[in-house]
Write a protein that binds this DNA or RNA. Sequence first.
DNA 1: CATGGTCAAGTGGCA
DNA 2: TGCCACTTGACCATG
Length: 298
Amino acid sequence: MNLGYACANLTLAKNKTKVCCNRSMVKKTFLRKGIDYASELALLNVKDLSEILKWNVANNINFFRVSSDMFPWASHYKLSQLPQYNLIKSELLSIGDYAKENKLRLTSHPGPFNVLVSPSASVVENTISDLNIHAELFDLLSLSNSTYNKINIHCNGVYGDKKAAMDRFCTNFKKLPENVRTRLTVENDDKASMYSVLDLMYLYEKIGIPIVFDYHHHKFCSGDLSEKEALKLAVSTWPKGVIPVVHYSESKSVHENNSEIKLQAHSDYINNLPDTYGLDVDIMVEAKAKELSIIPFL
DNA sequence: CATGGTCAAGTGGCA
DNA sequence: TGCCACTTGACCATG
């Protein structure tokens, strides 16, 4: 069992050097400075990914979610067009080697704008483009073509008919290149009207895509399964030889005893680790305090 | 240099 | 209708 955290390291971010992997810019700046500046930021982001992974190794953390914002405005150019592409490429290659040597599990979680179930062709197009960028990054890192290095998404839409939406997911899944398809996973949602683990089994049965179980989301969308049942079902969708990933977080509203905050929002820290019911899983902790939240449990 | 308004993208729930 | 929440606040104009 490995514990991991997502995207950013607060300890390093507070350094004078401001280590971070999601330097970006607003639209106006992108229009003004263009791909040259995007390249500079991307190179800094990539170098800092290396710093974070080194810190992780030094602190016995070998599970980490890579930021989806490594390349600012990446959907507007090909990575190979970046002026510093060769430098970025070689840096990523060496990070990939480092990850392999140290048995680091790297995953990703593209944002809520990825909607493979969308009835809109342009939304699906943009989704495919974003997923491609994630896969290209993973290829440059020489990460495995399997859900060991998952690219995990939600369905992100229902439109009044889950089955029809999931059918579109299956259709669009077939349009994805191999380096995305082999890594793609789906996660249960945190709204009752959306996709429970049980709902997502429909996708698994049709296209064999593994399900990431999120403990916190399950509380809001159980599909009438107990936590144990839903976890076991999700774990059963993972291929042999790949340890399933689960997500764990706690409610900010409960932590801070503040009913103004939505129950779904994530707390800074966690009080417990989840019950894995004897299953071997890697736990991605989604807490605002990032690495600080898991240190007590290592 | 500190700070507050603002920021690409999709969706659903809620006040 | 507009804000919040979602895997992560960061950028940048202004004072």
